[in-house]
Amino acid sequence: MTDSSAAHLQTQLTDRMRGSRWSRIEVVESIGSTNADLVARASGDPAAVAGHVLIALEQTAGRGRHTRAWESPAGAQLAMSVAVGVPRPTAALGWLSLLAGIAVSAAIEEVCEPLRQTPGQVNLKWPNDVLIDDRKVAGILAEFVAAGAGDGQAAGSGTAVIGLGINTAMTEEQFPVPTATSLSVAAGQSVDHADLAVAVLTSLDDLLTLWPDRLPDIATRYRAQSGTLGSQVKLILPGDKEIVGVAEEIDAAGRIVVNTGSEKVVAAAGDVTHLR
């Protein structure tokens, strides 16, 4: 891809998202990490970065949970980060990655006709993965940057940066693990990045109107899209403690509740594997 393709996509998205909360859309040819870039900007000027969208056609040092890193081949993934202003202290920050998962799954179904025809084929794995037929097609990372004392913002406020990567045109040979997939493989069609980005940003814009004051509405939508609820899972907690049981609930705080048969374990963080 060339610089002109980045410029063309930026112009398209700016025009199509006019009037939304996304006040500035920037598309770059290549970057280390869209999240790292926006986090750094938010640390310098939190108020200025809210509403900013950063998209990279190629990401060379993408960031995941637990400092995991990956690369996205040029043109094979939609790598995007958005900055959301957090005007006051809230205990609902953990819902942002779950909310983003709902937006991504809805966007995928909107632009991929074959997947839209089979309800439940696209679903969510707690806490931050989007799956197609139990293979990962997208990952999400939300980070919070607290406002500094001299930023003129309320204590406890700041900026949330939500990053996502959707595998669009990766081939089987390019998948980092056998449990990955892409839209081209799973849906059997090519996806226009502009259409997909617009669908994601529109859905995010809509869902963020519910956050943080209408969490039950978000929770209802999340539970309906969850592939984890009701499944036998292995949950690896921080410190590498393993729990095996049935995922019974996503509670009001966005935590997973796993019933092992002898106890119910509630976790705000961890890695889930669906067991078959």
Rank of each mutant, 00 (worst) to 15 (best):
Q77V: 13
G85Q: 11
G120T: 13
V161K: 06
C112M: 00
L93T: 11
G75R: 10
L78I: 10
V49C: 07
A142K: 00
K125L: 08
A138K: 04
L115S: 09
L99P: 13
S81N: 02
E109L: 08
L141K: 05
D129M: 06
T168S: 09
L141Q: 01
L141C: 00
G139N: 02
G139S: 09
G120N: 14
Q121G: 02
A74L: 15
V49Q: 09
G156V: 03
T90S: 13
A69E: 11
A155W: 12
A91C: 06
Q117C: 12
W70D: 06
P89L: 12
A169S: 15
I140C: 06
A83M: 09
H66Y: 12
P127T: 14
G158L: 00
H66A: 13
A103M: 01
E173F: 10
P178T: 04
K125Q: 10
T60P: 03
G158K: 07
E143P: 14
A106R: 15
A106S: 13
S72W: 15
D129Q: 08
V130K: 00
T171C: 02
V84S: 04
A147G: 15
P176A: 05
V130C: 00
S97V: 08
S97F: 02
D133A: 15
G152D: 00
T118R: 13
H66L: 14
P178Q: 00
L57N: 11
D134G: 10
C112K: 02
I166S: 06
D151H: 07
P73H: 08
P114E: 11
A103R: 08
R116N: 14
Q59L: 03
G152I: 05
T159C: 12
G156W: 01
T90Q: 10
V82C: 08
G62F: 04
L124I: 11
